[in-house]
């Protein structure tokens, strides 16, 4: 793991007058898998939207690779280094191949060779010409993951990517994410309710509660010796939400 790829300082995100995120400081390291856990409404997905520049923070400093995105317009090339796989895969009303090639098509890049390899990687090599809308939930999520990987992102944001999926699909997706991080040094920020998944995948884990980062530590420390009593309660499964 390298230097900080994202530096967030005094980030506040409000919708109307309601504050949904208030982070004093958060650094995301180049090449790490960072898992963010916490109950619904903790601000995890909002944070991902800020990191993908889908929304702007209400105030604070969000620096990506040295560019202070609050002050400067984010160059398109920089914005295109980051992508998100959402909890509910939104696919085009087209075949699987066209869906996987979509991000490349937006960049005017050739999809030749790339799509086939990725479909094999996600176990959908026989589905290239199938209608994407007729796939099962797990298959759709794998198409969404292949589509994200096709653009070779520097940062991959995963918003509950395996929620409601069966163990086979969960294990397949986790292995792909792990391999992508290991082989391509892709930085991964994973939002999940599943603390076991965070434990299996992440190098560091952070707990978000009511829009605030309660604790962020190496995975082993986070689970074995949490410093904050709220983290300890969350890890023990005692936090009711």
């Amino acid at each position: 793991m390298g230097e900080s790829i994202f530096q967030l300082r005094a980030i506040v995100k409000q919708y109307d007058a309601r504050t949904v995120l208030h982070l004093d400081a958060l650094d995301i390291l180049q090449g790490e898998i960072l898992a963010l856990v916490g109950p619904s409404g903790a601000g995890k997905s909002t944070l991902l939207r800020l990191l993908n520049f889908l929304e702007a923070p209400t105030s604070g400093q969000l620096v990506y690779r040295g560019v202070n995105t609050a002050r400067e317009n984010i160059p398109l090339a920089l914005r295109r280094e980051i992508t998100t796989v959402f909890q509910r895969p939104v696919l085009l009303n087209a075949n699987v191949r066209a869906n996987v090639a979509f991000g490349l098509q937006l960049r005017g890049a050739s999809a030749n060779g790339v799509v086939g390899k990725l479909l094999t990687r996600v176990g959908l090599q026989n589905f290239a010409h199938a209608s994407a809308r007729k796939l099962s939930g797990g298959e759709m999520q794998r198409v969404a993951l292949a589509r994200a990987l096709a653009i070779e992102p520097r940062v991959l944001l995963l918003d509950e990517p395996t929620a409601n999926l069966d163990p086979y699909n969960i294990s397949l997706i986790e292995e792909i994410v792990r391999a992508q991080n290991r082989e391509r040094a892709t930085t991964v920020v994973l939002v999940t309710h599943n603390i076991f998944q965070a434990k299996r995948l992440a190098h560091r884990v952070g707990l978000l509660l009511n829009g605030q980062l309660v604790e962020l530590r190496d995975t082993a420390q986070f689970f074995q010796s949490p410093q904050d009593p709220r983290t300890a309660a969350f890890v023990r499964g005692e936090m009711v939400y």
């Binding site: 992508t83 939104v90 009303n93 994200a148």
Partner: peptide
């Protein structure tokens, strides 16, 4: 068209025009 599609297109690097074109194609 699913409103999430615009967000997904933007997350994949679509410009505003590409985003609108994607919605129109859908």
């Amino acid at each position: 068209v699913d409103p999430q599609l615009r967000l997904q297109a933007r997350a994949l690097g679509a410009t505003r025009i590409q985003e609108m074109w994607t919605v129109l194609q859908e």
